[in-house]
Write a protein that binds this DNA or RNA. Structure first.
Lengths: 325, 325
DNA sequence: AAATATATGTCAACCGGTTAATATAAAATA
DNA sequence: TATTTTATATTAACCGGTTGACATATATTT
């Protein structure tokens, strides 16, 4: 049988209440009693049942994370950073990979609420779901437009798009493309595109954005990229909205006989750890993942404590200079 | 205030017991009652409190995952696959990134036990911790030697090492190195090295294994790799124990003026999704991550159901042909 | 009409902790 | 010595569900 608080009390020769006091460090306690209780807990290898405590306290010290998938350099690093910081603040992490499926996202949301998480950090790519509002739960969004009272943490997407486009222009590219996800999905990432378009226009160049949906599988994406090359053969520069897609564009370009950066210059977006190890040659706009994670966790905790936080926090990006420009 | 089962009962005009029956689909129920209850739940936006249920049922439908970090192509993919399959089987996932820190691993273990997880899947890189045994909990290990009664899922490490080494030999390399983690860490991954050594010897070649600790940071790893090149300048082939390190070796080699694969042939290990997108040129031994995840989940569930499972399950590997050999 | 199957209610115990109230005794201080 | 502070015990309520026992009322079948 599993050891419970009454067993500890019996072995230590004290009352259940006293054991609870030792556990929670409340009320008057002599050193002697504390030691007796600790000895008993140790000899019985007692682990308090967090579920019972959670029920009474109405606090689980659990935070839910909802992201598309951890099988991606950016989200993997982000989730790892979030988890680390949450753990340091005494929270455990319940994770949900929505796989860009709104239905799955909604299921996760319900499950997490049912599990009484103290808060949520979401970075899923789907449309804002009413449920988040109904949830009446502290929520922080990363790089996603939610509704009015959900704070958002995002990299400086506009500046990122501006830096990328200007870099391409300054390095001599004349026909510069851009990729973006579906426009009907409201995400701050579209500001990268806004910046691209404005910079292009201010240089009297014609912007062309090509749709590459985040949720497509590799094959479909590759197909789309090939179509793009066929449709815009004069392209000599491209700002791709994330590094995984940028790698795909690079490889496809190579297969089609383009030389990077001579025939085609590529700038990506994200600049995660893994990318910098596996493909450091890719010039990209680096999001400050650590910073974003730190901010998201502190914002969430502030909200959990019932205090107010800014609704939008933007963190600066910088260029990682590879050899693709 | 949060809606609870009594509120639903009141609104539906039935008893608490009946609502519970509807929720759990137990006992006699008329269509009419079921509808009344569902309507009430919907209008109140009722979400049952899983914590209360967990306490009574002594079952949480929670599974804990303990891995070094999700910020790695292999573990990221593995965790994503595990999470997906567990979710499909009705389990939510509590995650812990041990960061190769035994103390942190132990803390996670305790926390997860305290949270009453129904089972654990571990792939942390640290020494077997007694606690796993004490835990008296269904546990499945991935690529890790635990103790007698903990089932292990692993790729065919020996075959992987054999394939890699033979590939290098057959492609003409004469001075072939190998990297491995600390030998005192008991992991099935050492079988890659065993295979390397045996194949080398059977070809009358001298095996040299160089230590690259998984837990070192990039800088220290790079330093170690440079030392290796300095110490073995005649090296013309290398079997690196994971793809991230292989990428590092490749880059360092390039910086030192080696041409891959002409001067140096490189074979990695893991072959995760992300690697195949960012660095498909790397020839590597592919672990069947999906297969392993599937096996781990079904083994865990079998154990949770109190049935026996094999203690060791080995899944086959295959070669991913890039251009580094 | 009697017997059986179906549908629902009431009540209370239970899961394993936390906590407030109340009581008592020993130790420290006035 | 009287008073206050410190230390601990006992008891019971509580968190929000689940479940078994038992009662009762229709509906259906023989």
């Amino acid at each position: 049988m599993v050891v419970k608080i009454d067993d500890v009390a019996r072995v230590a020769g004290v009352s259940k209440t006293t054991v609870s006091r030792v556990l929670n460090n409340r009320g008057y306690l002599s050193e002697k009693t504390i030691k007796k209780v600790h000895d008993a807990m140790e000899s019985l290898n007692y682990q308090p049942n967090a579920v019972a405590r959670q029920l009474y306290k109405k606090e689980t010290k659990l935070v839910g994370l909802i992201f598309p998938t951890v099988d991606n350099p950016f989200f993997g690093q982000l989730v790892a950073e979030l988890e680390k910081r949450l753990f340091d603040s005494g929270f455990k992490v319940l994770i949900g990979n929505s796989m860009n499926d709104p239905a799955k996202e909604e299921m996760y949301l319900k499950e997490l609420i049912s599990n009484q998480v103290d808060g949520l950090i979401v970075g899923a790519q789907n449309r804002g779901i009413d449920e988040y509002h109904k949830a009446n739960l502290p929520v922080v969004a990363i790089d996603r437009v939610m509704n009015e009272d959900i704070p958002v943490i995002a990299s400086d997407n506009y500046m990122g798009g501006k830096l990328a486009t200007e870099l391409l222009i300054n390095s001599g590219a004349k026909h510069i493309m851009n990729t973006d996800g579906p426009i009907n999905l409201e995400t701050p990432a579209h500001r990268r595109r806004d910046a691209y378009e404005e910079v292009m226009k201010s240089h009297n160049m014609v912007p062309h954005t090509y749709l590459v949906d985040f949720s497509w599988d590799i094959k479909k994406k590759k197909q789309a990229v090939k179509e793009m090359f066929a449709k815009y053969p004069e392209m000599d520069g491209i700002f791709v909205t994330n590094d995984m897609d940028a790698a795909l564009v690079w490889r496809t370009a190579t297969e089609l006989g383009y030389k990077v950066p001579d025939d085609l210059k590529i700038v990506g977006y994200d600049g995660a750890n893994i990318t910098r190890v596996l493909l450091p040659e890719l010039t990209t706009i680096e999001q400050p993942v650590e910073e974003m994670a730190k901010m998201a966790v502190s914002t969430l905790i502030t909200r959990i404590n019932g205090e107010d936080t800014p609704l939008e926090q933007i963190v600066p990006v910088k260029i990682w200079h590879g050899t693709s420009v």
